[in-house]
Amino acid sequence: MLLASGLSVSLGRRPVLSDVAFEAQPGQITAIVGPNGSGKTTLLRMLTGDLAGQGAISLDGDTPATMAPRALAQRRAVLPQATAVGFPFTLREIVRMGHEAGHAAHRPGIVDEAVAEVGLSRKIDGFFHDMSGGEQARGHLARVRAQVWEPMRDGRPSWLFVDEPVAALDIGHQLQVMTLLRRFADAGGGVVAVMHDLNLTAMHADRMVLMDGGRIVAAGRPTEVMTDPLLSSAYRCRLCVNTAPPKGIWLLPQAAALA
């Protein structure tokens, strides 16, 4: 289990997170949502140790900050919001970097499997920078998947931290990526994802964490967080949550324009 408490950080002398407590269970997709600038990326970067600030974080009983980098890389993989590649590597070489850093480095064939999982097999030996923005995003996802290939290892969960993994993707690939994350969680892994699309999140996440102004204003099952007052207040417009048979909830985006 991922447990964090008392997370506070200031960027450029402005407090961006203040006293945030966060938890995520293995076997679940925990989605962080909230309006632009509400601190989602900042929270994720605190959780992954990219930002130094105040607070305590424990990952399945260990303190990531004091773990050896290699050991930590075998337990959890992190996909930032954007990653620029500095040299003309091929997709295979990029994904191999994840594979070799991870806990299944000795097992052959994983690079091909991870690339197949995101539907890019045809481009595996092509230049990474020749792929479209959405394909590059899926390529990086394959890299972090190859790093923590086994969702459970030695009875301990592996973790994926992903910042807006579907932001650049068409609807078909959005579903593909969410299905990939779902399978990882169903097999025992932990997923913490910053998400933008509320409908997609409601459909796939086990828990939603709603942020606003550097604080968590609601957390719980999607049905608990996706309520008219909570969303309307956080996103500062009138939003109507609807339910559709047989189950599930959906948001009518046009409602925002009526506010």
Partner: peptide, 16 residues
């Protein structure tokens, strides 16, 4: 190699 993806990513790939 890992640093080609930026220092942050390199760190997450277990690189000191």
């Amino acid at each position: 190699n890992a640093m080609a993806l930026g220092e942050g990513v390199a760190r997450h790939l277990g690189v000191p």
